[in-house]
Design a protein around this nucleic acid. Structure first.
Length: 118
RNA sequence: CAGGUCGGUUGGGCGAUCGCGGUCCUGCGUUGUCGGGAUCGAGGAAAGUCCGCACUCCACAGAGCACGGCGUCGGAUAGCACCCGGGGCGGGGAACCCUCCGUGAGGAGCUAACCUGCCGGAUAAAAGGGCCACAGAAACAAACAGCCACCCUCACCCCUGCGCCCCUCUCCCACUGGGAGAGGGGAUGGGGGUGAGGGGUGGUGAUGGUGAAAAGGUGGUGUAAAAGACCACCGGCAUCUGCAGUAAUGUGGAUGGCCAGGUAACCCCCGCCGGGAGCAAGGCCAAGCAGGGACGAAGUCGUCUGCGGACGACGGGAGACUGCUCGUCUUCAUACGUGCUCUCCCACGCGGUGAGAGAGCCAGUCCCGGGUAGGCCGCACCGAGCGGCGCGGCGACGCGCCGCCCAGAGAGAUGAUCGCACAGUGGCGCCAGGUUUCGACGGAACGUCUCAACCAUCAGCGCCACGGACAGAAUGCGGCUUAUAGACUGACCUGAGGA
RNA sequence: GGCGUCGUGGCCAAGUGGUAAGGCAAGGGUCUGCAAAACCCUUAUUCAGGGGUUCGAAUCCCCUCGACGCCU
């Protein structure tokens, strides 16, 4: 997932975590907030707290989330800010399990737009 | 071959596909959170932050105090306390041999390489304080108990002069009796001995026990009793001194006297070092905000009007342009009062009429100007830099030559999938051998051979399955500590070992 | 990234070189018809872990682990 799709500013993280709507999964937590401008590019932030493990496991969790999100991001509605928070079980999960967990969360949030190919 | 020990290197490889970040170059009817190309992209510990630096800011005349750290010798270094090489004291350390214990299986000790802790001063060179629970007489300076001598006192025993008292016998005088002698007993006094209770004076120095720790050890001489008081041997210390070593120190010799604990990772003393903080250090920038400062006024006329005001001209205030004037441009306008605007609420004559409460405004222009958040720099580095080779040194390390420029940061880039081999582990099957030295023969490497030793739950081959540790840079560097599956490789020691 | 503080029964905790206080909780007992309250008794072989100094360490020194706080 390229950096232009990423949520980077500390202010944005605070805003989304304060006023966004959250959806939980045993592996990941998703927080969604609608942006002011509906045509803006959807951005995704990734977080892993100290409960996940040491720096190696935190980095692995965030890589899994970014890689899984990369293939899903063309099908997500625009004008959104998302945050993905890793949970401790994510470290032992595979890429396919992570992708299924994210797909489940995006459908529950009703922001996934299916295309003909998928 | 069996066992033990210490280092060094490495830290998964190759290929395909999808994907991520930095730098440089480049493209454009679309200058973008755009496209294309090249190149680079985690570690030995990046970790812990235990030391030492670089760098930055603050403070600072110099020196000292306080506080903290360090403390054997020599070296290395920009610097360091833990780096390198030595020294001393102590602890650990396999098998065989040896010693001890055990009926025995076995256990303990001794020990090589090696590992590891500590290292100024408690005596002298250089001075003090504190503490040492319980126990013990006592924890460092003497006392108490003990032992010994003497004196006083007491008890017992022995000897005993003169005198005293009592009893018995004999003799004399001669009869309420007296005297003399002998014997026995008693009291007292003196002398001696023994013992003990107590007291006093003096000597003595570790004594049965206590304790972690109590005064060199053993044997003798010696004495009233003892003691290095003296002697022999052993051990330690001090002074002088020979030899080896840069030195710490080691090893001899002579002399001396043995004098008296531990703790300084308790205060302290001596010597040396350290100013404080840390890249969230620190510097710069745009826009604003808080805040601070300077200057600071005046209306008149005309047009329109829904009568609140709006516009224009002249004049005025502040500022900019300019070296100054003129000129041009921007902008403002009146009021601290019974003021104006807005909101709420109440009363009525329902009219924004009156009472009350709250909020705001009373210029404007210009200058200075934060902190946080944001952006840029610091910061991706020509450097105590990295790699290779050579030389010097036991080593830490140093010098010379050649080559290279080598991640970067921001909510934080290295991943995913598949395939192939390769270590490794487990299972099954096959094979019955495998490894090694010496010797002999031939010989250019090397090959062949007999016994011997060791392993055969081995080695070798095939198939299947599993499967590669610890761990992620954030200003940089040196050291230390901690975590770490394995693989490769070098050296040392002990034991067993041939023809 | 840097700087600092603290770890003592199940919980809160005192103790700063010499026998590990106390309170709550838990368990048992007395009392009661049964409870509550009250009273009595019990519960630390690793004072976070490991080394060292010392005769002796929760305490002093070093290293590690864990938790928490701060940076304008």
């Amino acid at each position: 997932m390229q950096r232009k799709f990423r949520l980077t500013r500390s202010e944005d993280f605070k805003r989304v975590r304060r006023s966004g709507k959250s959806y939980a999964h045993p592996l990941v937590v998703l927080i969604v907030q609608t942006h002011d401008q509906p045509r803006a590019r959807t951005r995704v932030g990734v977080a892993a707290g100290r409960t996940v493990g040491t720096a190696v496991y935190r980095n692995r969790a965030k890589r899994l989330l970014r890689e899984a999100m990369r293939t899903l991001i063309p099908n997500i509605a625009s004008g959104l800010d998302l945050i993905l928070i890793a949970r401790p079980g994510l470290v032992s999960a595979t890429l396919e399990e992570t992708r299924r967990a994210l797909f489940n969360l995006l459908q529950r949030a009703q922001i996934f737009i299916p295309t003909h190919e998928s």
